[in-house]
Design a protein around this nucleic acid. Structure first.
Lengths: 169, 169
DNA sequence: CCATGATAGTTCACGGGTAAATCATCATGG
DNA sequence: CCATGATGATTTACCCGTGAACTATCATGG
């Protein structure tokens, strides 16, 4: 109980600093935003470590997982829309992934402008090893919450997310 | 009520895809993680837009806000620890910020190896304009939550954050 | 069946981030 | 009071991401 009262974390210290400099700004709503950003950053860092051991980038994994969960070869254009990254970036990533033997490019027969990208067996095995480990990391992050709290957290986040980007629905 | 049942969002669709490919993996804990990452990404995008209008980068703003909320000139080394970015990055950012007239460098008198970085008036005014707008964005994101729900969300996130990085406390 | 515009990807040029090497200054202990 | 190692910041070299220009192919309408 007192432990809650005394649990001043980094984010609250930052807020206290702002309160001194800009006392007329109510920074209370920034609490949630700051924690969300920080949690996301820490999850990303954990993942990046995992990937570095396999000489892989977060962005590269995005391409691999898009292919894996779709379950069929994808056009380069489909990968740009699924990942939200511009075409030039995808071209470069595919170059690297192809060099690493995780992916294969083939010209689309019907439309020879197009490129069909497929996971190699090695690429598929890599995703199947990395993805569950990532899920496990995220599960571990929630360890201090009860089942009901986890559900409530998920619900509240969904509400916020819908407000931020209605098109996601 | 039914609206909840039918509100299948992007994240749940991705989960459904994984369930087809890797049915033995329980992806339920990844829900919270995925939403946190997505919300953080959308908040960052909003902020980046705001900054682009002033020819500023998120990373550059981090330097400016560190200076502003501390309220005194900082050593370059202090900025690296506060931002978590390596020294080489900070040197480059300070070059740009100095060129833009937002920051000034001066050799530290006591220790001539060191550099003292200070906001210019222009830099300070810029932060004082941008920071409240960022808070406002984050407030708007929470608009669909009651006051109690906001508090609960903050509390749950704090628990997760403490688990992920106990040193934050 | 062209000619012309649209479309899919790639190439180019450039900017930012970073680890490692480097430079300048400081602190110390002999 | 040096010499030597430690420390603070910068420079260098390289990687990645990205908008814009470019190339190859397709689709169409005359």
């Amino acid at each position: 109980m007192t432990s809650i009262l005394f649990a001043v974390d980094y984010i609250e210290r930052v807020r206290a600093q702002w309160a001194e400099r800009l006392p007329h700004v109510d920074t209370s709503p920034a609490d949630v935003g700051a924690r969300v950003r920080r949690i996301a950053a820490l999850l990303e860092a954990e993942l990046a470590d995992d990937l570095a051991a396999r000489d892989l980038t977060r962005a590269e994994l995005d391409v691999l997982t898009a292919l894996r969960r779709t379950g069929r070869p994808l056009r380069a254009g489909e990968i740009t829309t699924m990942t939200g990254s511009p075409g030039a970036s995808i071209t470069k990533r595919l170059d690297r992934l192809e060099r690493a033997g995780l992916v294969e490019r083939a010209v689309h027969e019907r439309d020879k402008r197009g490129v069909l990208v497929a996971l190699t067996t090695e690429g598929e095995e890599l995703v199947d090893e990395l993805f569950p480990r990532q899920v496990e990391h995220e599960r571990a992050a929630l360890e201090d919450l009860s089942e009901a709290e986890r559900a409530e957290l998920g619900r509240l986040l969904a509400v916020v997310l819908r407000r931020l980007d209605p098109r996601d629905y």
